[in-house]
Amino acid sequence: MHMTRRQAIGLGVGAAALILAGPALTPALAAGPTADEAIKAFTGGAEAKAAKVSLSTPEIAENGNTVPISFSVESPMTSDDHVTEVMLLADGNPRPGVATFHFSDMSGEASASTRIRLAKTQNIVAVAKMSDGSFFMDKKLVKVTIGGCGG
């Protein structure tokens, strides 16, 4: 096969990326519930509808060590109708759980921002639990250039 100079460089970069990603994927550490299992445990098997939650993430994260994430959930946030919890998951991390936020009727809005670590390109999932026991979710893909779980 004849390769142009450009293709050769592209291959080199790809190989370097693979080498960098390698140590992050230590299988022994990856034990634990998967993202789907974690969602099931959170909802008790109830279906989380893809509505009401809006997750805002960068499309491309250059540095997986600190990826800004924010979410908001549509809710009047009154004492009898509010969001009680929001669980954030990263399905491609060695352990998918990121954080769980607890809201109250004094929260005013069900929204929060934080910064998280992502080991590689993956989906971020936010699942919201409402005070009436229903669940809603949103999912966004984040492309990660440099993973953030050490190695």
């Binding site: 060590n65 600190t66 990826v67 924010s70 946030m77 990263a90 991390n93 352990r95 759980g97 990121v98 954080a99 936020f101 004094m106 929260s107 005013g108 809005e109 929204s111 929060a112 921002s113 934080t114 910064r115 998280i116 670590r117 992502l118 953030g148």
Partner: peptide
Amino acid sequence: RPAVSANPYFQFTVK
């Protein structure tokens, strides 16, 4: 959990 970045930052609202 460990997937929260170093120097954990939160922004949230209160009524």
